[in-house]
Design a binder for these strands. Sequence first.
DNA 1: ATGTCTCTAGCATAGAGA
Length: 271
Amino acid sequence: MKLVVTSWNVNSIRMRLDHVTRFLTDQRPDVLCLQETKCPDDRFPSAAFKALGYHHMAINGQKGYHGVAVLSRLPFTSTNVMGFCDKNDSRHIAVTLGTGAKAAAGVTIHNFYVPAGGDIPDPALNPRFAHKLAFLDELMQWQDRAKPTASPSILLGDLNIAPYEADVWNHKALLNVVSHTPIETARLEEFRQTSGFVDAIRQLRPIPEKVFTWWSYRSPDWAAADKGRRLDHVWVAPALASSVTDSSISRETRGWERPSDHVPVSITLDL
DNA sequence: ATGTCTCTAGCATAGAGA
């Protein structure tokens, strides 16, 4: 069977409901993982997704900020939420697909929204950047404790870091810009390599191809200027790496009316 | 360099965060 999994930071699920239903109708991924839903759980627009065949949902939202959710056509056997940095932020939810998911049964998907980190790339001056770095440290501790790649797992989401030179429009211009500073790119790469996760997008689109998933709202000519960054990622455990047969960056959604600043990132697994 | 979008509080608009 083919399993299509998508990650999308929608910047408010209620403002973007028409975009999400359009994407689900057009692309029909099996699983859609959302970040920045900015929506309390009791106000999550579940009915619209159920009407499209996405009967299985896992939601970890809060009022105003952050928030993650998983919409799925395949059933879960379990869901799990982790907290980080002693905050109540909604930045993670995991689901494990159940036997009803056939060949995908047992696959765990971790959906993350890593802190953006503010503007000043100095943890001594900027508590938001300190929080981002501490979050990455806790991710490192988590992989050491939980060994997520020992099972068939996927880690995806808005990691708010563009780790490689080919992940930004201008490497040198962004070296001191939060999302591409050496301290955070090194920390993310150390986490990925130690955990063993494989960057599924880069496996299919190797460096030096430029790959972007985010374009700032402040760039009115975003498509022509193309000053993007790859902030959204899909990683797979080594046991799944050879099953990844395709990837898709749905850049067209950035051109829709009143878009998110992030676009959907998808992989196809042949299981 | 600080342009745009979305949220909350609270009722018009300012501040925070991304």
